[in-house]
Amino acid sequence: MDYLQYLRLDKFPHIWCAGCGDGIALKAILRAVHNIGWEKDNIAMVSGIGCSSRTPGYVDFNTLHTTHGRAIPFATGLKMARPEMNVIVVSGDGDATAIGGNHLIHAARRNIDLTVLIYNNHIYGMTGGQVSPETPMGDFATTAPYGAMENNFDISGLTIAAGASFVARCTVYHANLLGKLIEKALSKKGFSLVEVMSPCPTAYGKINKKGTGNEMILNQKQLAVRVERAKTMSPEELKNKIIIGTIIDRELPEYVNTYEKIISQAQRR
């Protein structure tokens, strides 16, 4: 497919570092959009602040680069104002689970028809490598010089418990699968989330001696386990593995749709 038709070419080359996974994730989004066949005019891409949140600047959609952590609320207002619009949120792990954590679970609870893509790089990339709620215990960050000492959020578990319709996880190495999972998420009526494991060689890889971007990406091949196979494995076997695939896909009432029904009810009275 021709990716370039969806890009704002004058903004390239993009700001992401060599070997950063974010560009691979963006390609997967574009393949998904292309396969579904959405008109560019009917797509809004909304983000917070961070390296990952720079994504909207590069795509030829209606694009909204908001404040740190708040992409989901802006997207919620936009979706309610224009239910016919396809609203995609791109966010970093810090953006979505630290400062924006509350919005994430509430949007999942409402089951509003948004697709949230969280690029999990285990770190605050844009601000130079501070610890994030997704920095694995013991790993280093500029604000975790003795190693991270806090537990991580299980992003998928969190959003499933909160009520999301669709939740998946994938690495950027498995780009083809990633594109398919994003396509499923975009097609889903209701709150959908894909956690995209996207290496940050600069702010996380280096300090933790994980190698360069290409090495980190190749390493994902070793770490990934398909959801189906993971079910047959013990917790010990799954330690440090990345489970990829569709984690949940279920039919639940969608918020804006429910609201539209309330409107017709209120108007009949």
Partner: peptide, 11 residues
């Protein structure tokens, strides 16, 4: 945030 998003949507 939501009111800004909705206003951008034209409402």
């Amino acid at each position: 945030g939501a009111v800004i998003g909705a206003s951008l949507g034209g409402v």
